[in-house]
């Protein structure tokens, strides 16, 4: 059985657009991380340090 895998070449304009989209996705993920960090502090407050050693 022969499987053909195709190589594609993006134009400069397409690369530029892809890069912009990637930055937007990275930003969205960064914001999500910041939100989870902040909400952890908000919900647990100082209690976050209160754990058995």
């Amino acid at each position: 059985m022969t499987q053909v895998s195709e190589m594609v070449q993006l134009s400069e304009e397409q690369k530029k657009r892809q890069r912009k989209r990637s930055i937007a996705i990275a930003l969205a993920l960064g914001i999500l991380v910041a939100i989870f960090y902040a909400i952890t502090l908000v919900k647990m407050g100082p209690g976050i340090l209160n754990r058995p050693l």
Partner: peptide, 14 residues
């Protein structure tokens, strides 16, 4: 059954 992978020439994406 073996799989033979072929790489076709590079093409641009529309």
């Amino acid at each position: 059954m073996s799989i033979v992978e072929q790489t076709s020439p590079v093409r641009a994406l529309s």
